[in-house]
Computed example of a mutant assay.
Amino acid sequence: MKVDIWSDIACPWCFIGKRRFEAGLRDFAHADAVEITWHSYQLDPSLPEHYDGTEVDYLSERKGMPRAQVEQMIGHVGEQAAGEGLHYDFDNLVVANSMRAHHLLHVAARHGVADAVKEDLLSAHFEHGVDIGDPAQLIQVAGRHGLDADEVRTALDDAQVRAEVEHDFAQARAYGIQGVPFFVIDEKFGVSGAQPAQTFTGALEQAWQASHPLAVQYAEGTTCGPDGC
């Protein structure tokens, strides 16, 4: 069974959603049969490579949100993250364009380590103040997962990889995705947002039953129905 996940590295709810999905998947009886594919999505493609300011500055200045509202929102998100064992550090978070990090994820997918690299990038961005727009930092992340530095360095600005990322964006538009994280199960069932773990378990079970209908064999004279036995 396939699960396609659209997500941005610069999205705090995407890390929380990853944790909740993983918890829901652990409670799914057929977890070993699930194939996960990560897809790219950018919340703000217009963001410069480096933004000289904090997350609060960015959201208040570029998005036009009152600082008090931003601070309250960030506090709430931080609490939700902590509930999943994550330790967000918004004071030291480096606001940067995530495009090159998405390039890295596509390289990671070619080598079967997309989930591990996604986890590392999210943690680096939200918990450790790493600049996810800096090629040197991305190459360090790649190296921790056995990826070749030269391959990654070339891919970070490669037109073909950019086309693959843009294809993910186009798929998201085709599905009508307007926010992330967004989970598509077997190309039939969609789950939007960082839902509770049990919601993911239920969606997985529903999708499994839809693709694996119960086969029933009847033997004459062994059941009772409305018209008798």
Rank of each mutant, 00 (worst) to 15 (best):
I74T: 07
R110C: 05
L121Q: 03
A109N: 03
S123M: 11
V161E: 03
Q206E: 11
A194I: 09
H212M: 10
F183N: 04
V161R: 08
K188C: 10
Q198P: 06
L105R: 02
G112V: 02
F189G: 12
V130I: 12
H87N: 14
L93E: 01
E127F: 03
E164N: 05
A116H: 04
D134V: 04
E84Y: 12
P181S: 09
H111E: 11
D148P: 13
L86D: 00
T154P: 02
F183V: 11
G179L: 03
E151F: 07
A159E: 14
D157Y: 01
T201H: 05
V165C: 11
A124N: 04
D186R: 10
Q209S: 10
P135E: 12
A109L: 03
E119D: 14
Q171M: 13
G129I: 00
P213Q: 12
G202Y: 08
G75L: 02
H212P: 07
A142H: 05
A155N: 02
A114L: 03
S98V: 00
G143W: 10
Y88T: 00
S123R: 13
I139N: 12
I74D: 07
R162K: 12
A108P: 03
A170V: 04
A159T: 11
Q195H: 14
I132G: 01
A215W: 14
Q195N: 13
H167T: 15
A163R: 07
A163P: 03
R110G: 11
G112I: 00
Q198N: 14
I139K: 07
F200H: 05
Q171E: 14
E164W: 05
F200E: 02
A210H: 11
G112R: 09
F182Y: 15
E166S: 05
Q160H: 09
E79F: 06
P213C: 09
F183D: 09
A149D: 10
L104A: 00
V152R: 02
D131R: 12
A197R: 01
G190L: 11
Q160A: 10
A194F: 10
L138S: 07
E187R: 15
F189M: 13
Y218I: 15
Q198E: 15
E166L: 06
A163T: 12
A215G: 13
Y175T: 04
L138E: 08
F182D: 06
L204F: 01
D148W: 01
G193A: 14
R144W: 02
A96I: 02
K188P: 08
D150S: 14
A172N: 08
E84C: 14
G143I: 05
D89T: 00
I74C: 02
H106Y: 01
G78L: 00
A159V: 12
F200C: 09
Q198C: 01
T201A: 08
E127H: 06
H102K: 09
A174R: 14
L138D: 02
Q206M: 13
A170S: 11
L104W: 06
A194E: 06
L147P: 06
V180A: 04
S123Y: 10
A174S: 13
A172T: 03
E187T: 04
Y175E: 09
V216S: 13
Q217K: 15
V95D: 08
I185C: 07
L204K: 11
V184P: 06
P135C: 05
A114T: 03
A159L: 11
A172G: 13
Q80L: 13
E151G: 06
Q195L: 13
